[in-house]
Nucleic acid binder design. Sequence first.
DNA 1: AGCACGCCGACT
DNA 2: GTCGGCGTGCTC
Length: 729
Amino acid sequence: MNGKTEIKTRRVVPVLVPMPAERPYSYLVPDDMDVQAGSIVRVPLGPREVAGIVTDDASDQVDPKKLKSILHVFDCPLVSRDMLRFIRWTAEYTLSPPGMVARMVLRAPAAFDPEPFIPGLRYIGGKAERLTAAREKVLETANNGLSWTKSGLAHAAGVSGSVVEGLKAQGLFEDVMIPPPPVVGEPDPFYGQADLSEDQQAAAQCLVEAVEEDAYSVSLLHGVTGSGKTEVYFEAVARAVELGKQVLILLPEIALTQQFLDRFESRFGTRPAEWHSDLAPRQRERVWRQIAEGTVKVVAGARSALFLPFANPGLIIVDEEHDPAYKQEDRVFYNARDMAVVRGSIGKFAVILASATPSIESLVNANQGRYRYVPLQGRYADAALPDLKPLDMRRSPPVAGRFLSPAMVEAVGQTLQRKEQALLFLNRRGYAPLTLCRVCGHRFQCPDCSSWLVEHRFRGQLMCHQCGYHEKSPDACPSCGALDNLVACGPGVERIAEEAAATFPDARIIVLSSDMAGGVTRLRMEMEAIAKGEADIVIGTQLVAKGHNFPLITLVGVIDADLGLANGDPRAAERTFQLLNQVTGRAGRTGRKSVGLLQTYQPDHPVLKAIVAGDAHAFYEREIDERQRGMLPPFGRLAALIISADSRAEAESHARALRRAAPRDGDIEVLGPAEAPLAVIRGRHRFRLLVQGSKRSDIQSYLRALLQAAPKARGSLRVQVDIDPQSFL
DNA sequence: AGCACGCCGACT
DNA sequence: GTCGGCGTGCTC
């Protein structure tokens, strides 16, 4: 401008902002500001200010007039290089915008600036004038050299704050600033060392060695329910902690796993830090911050904990690695189990996948040598697996209008007589899965999706389990107007509870279902009550298969063992195998002889036969064989394409168009809708197609092309992708 | 994703 | 006359 050749080049850096843009946005760095890749910054974005992560990825060339400056660099540890790589990797693999992955890392809004020290007091000695009883109590309490908050000291001494004020006015206390307290104690690897069996020691040794190698590895810890997997992998946790590393333990349903935290505490002398969606915001920030600073050593968390900015990660454990709860099907679609493996690879540390019923792909990975296979045989101590028997419902059907077969009723009766607990398992919430009109045959169907409305008699509602639609239970048929002629078809847990109450009027019955009134807190209480023997019959959905142990149960009755085998899900068999194994494994933990009865109309179904025979090997062999023979799509060559649109008709027409658009002559094939038929989530109708191809890279490039085209397709089409893995690296 | 702007319907 | 519904478009 003024003829001088010196051009002041203002520094521009790419910043990942929490927005679905393909690339990071560019921002100016003020001259006196020190930023680098990994800095967490506050930047203007349109009309608002957001937190973003400075990265080193290329950003688009942008009109210099549009450039805005970074407002603030947070006083916070840098997001590590590894974490930046992990964000990029996850974004690419899941075909999601990198900013949306970064958004998952920054899920603790106020944690980026250090938590302020809080004002406090410390007793500096000396006697009080006019020493009253209250004043004496305060001085006694404070006489330990520690710092106290005013209210904390008053509370501990059992007096009001004004007593402390009075003493402070006499100059007996000095003002101090107290650093924020640690969220959890320091775990002690030698605190409550477990008495392990020989098998357990051998398995633990493998895992400990993996940790000591200080390199990437994946171990699949495969131990039957009750074999003490947790105690075994705790040894690996202990070793990692001893070596000064941070450990992440992923659990599928952390909100319900109070028992796990207790077990951890008795092994390590303190609880792990928790991470899940219903943490109080303040606690959430502290945990985030202390993980970033490296002071928290062990975190037990839900899948989102994978995106915490660990300062020095050294081990990730994925407990119940087969559990579908690890899949996030919202915004960024990912499977935390798979991304944990990737995180370990990037960070060069050990990953442990633990399960009694591993997913097929993990077992295949182990068979092929990509993962280390660590088997754990036999149940711990005197616990025995229950004897399983199929109940052929064609031969001994229940009384009309009932759902428990005579043999089941008898077994429950005997269990009650022995003063033991019975568990009746049915993976269906509500009273009845279908309601129809006796006069005209009208079936109540969800207006938003194609599924039947489930009657919830307790709430007096008809509900859609697919999308959450609900209406008041009607008295009259909306089609023919007939009154009091609606019939409930089939059972849900509420109906089983009704039948059990009629059959065993003196039994104390508890129903455990995710729609229980009172939410998670109430569920926890009921579970405690059951464990203490305050129920005779427990009736539950798949919730009972997760986390909590019920040591007093000696009979597990599966009401509909065929449920879940029938639908078009390529994982139907696997899911059923896993669920039924977990449910029946709930019994017999005290060493008493226990029994599992499976009501079925197809006792010869190979999956059920394998479960009944306790022959996991047969089951896995058959599943793997089916995939190899192309009966089921092979893993790594299958992706789900989730299409969402504003209306059902639009979603379906998009689905048809995409199926037509698939390159027929190429290796890509778009299969019809399966797994989930149609759901409405946050007002958008969602459709799922399966895409199959001979290489994962083919599928990914097809989907990428589709995503490129999607914005141009105008209207409301949105595509998201869920890629089924076999291996990553 | 989240926010503003803008254009049409029922209310103090 | 205004409050408020959600369609459209934009964010370095």
